[in-house]
Design a protein around this nucleic acid. Structure first.
Length: 164
DNA sequence: GCCAACGTTGGC
DNA sequence: GCCAACGTTGGC
């Protein structure tokens, strides 16, 4: 039986002063752990939904012009977030245990930067992107699903052939 | 720096 | 298990 391929796409939010697309590019093998997520809804996506090969829109938040600043791909399944178990980490959670990790992370790998980055204004006026979750006022989820149509539209704007 | 929106906490 | 208070996020 042929199985329908099910690649998914995600938007991951980060404050560039904390971790930027350039930081990802500079990481060993251009791979970094998406750790420190402390929201249950986002945790569930990291633990259960996000799979190796999925596409990632890397979004820079909390800056003057928040924007999609690059592309990455998921290169691991969800696995326990080590920072929750490390008392020295600012993301330490005293309730987490090795056999009860609570929090999960995935590894992502840099594909390309998008320059100029795709601003919220551009997203807002594009017919295929105006209904993105990230544009909804008050949506603070740092891991958001993206539709294949939205993924394609972003690639179009950036002038990039689908790298996945 | 403001403030709306949201998630979490804790008293009851 | 409700809900008010609180802290945080994040665009503007």
């Amino acid at each position: 039986m042929l199985q329908k391929q099910s690649r998914h796409y995600w938007l991951l939010k980060s404050e560039p002063s904390c971790f930027s697309i350039d930081d990802l590019k500079r990481s060993p093998k251009k791979i970094a752990s998406w750790d420190g997520v402390r929201n249950f809804q986002a945790r569930n996506l990291l633990r259960d939904q996000i799979k190796p090969g999925d596409g990632v829109l890397f979004y820079h938040s909390s800056i003057r012009e928040p924007a999609i600043a690059g592309l990455a791909k998921v290169v691991s399944d969800g696995y326990p977030d080590a920072t929750a178990l490390d008392p020295k980490s600012e993301h330490f959670d005293p309730k987490a245990r090795p056999d009860h990790p609570i929090w999960f992370m995935v590894d992502i790998q840099y594909i390309t930067g998008i320059d100029p980055p795709i601003t919220r204004e551009t997203l807002r006026f594009h017919p295929d992107l105006m209904d993105m979750d990230v544009l909804i006022k008050g949506n603070r989820l740092s891991v958001q699903p993206v539709t294949p149509k939205q993924w394609k539209a972003v690639l179009n704007i950036a002038g990039i052939f689908d790298p996945l």
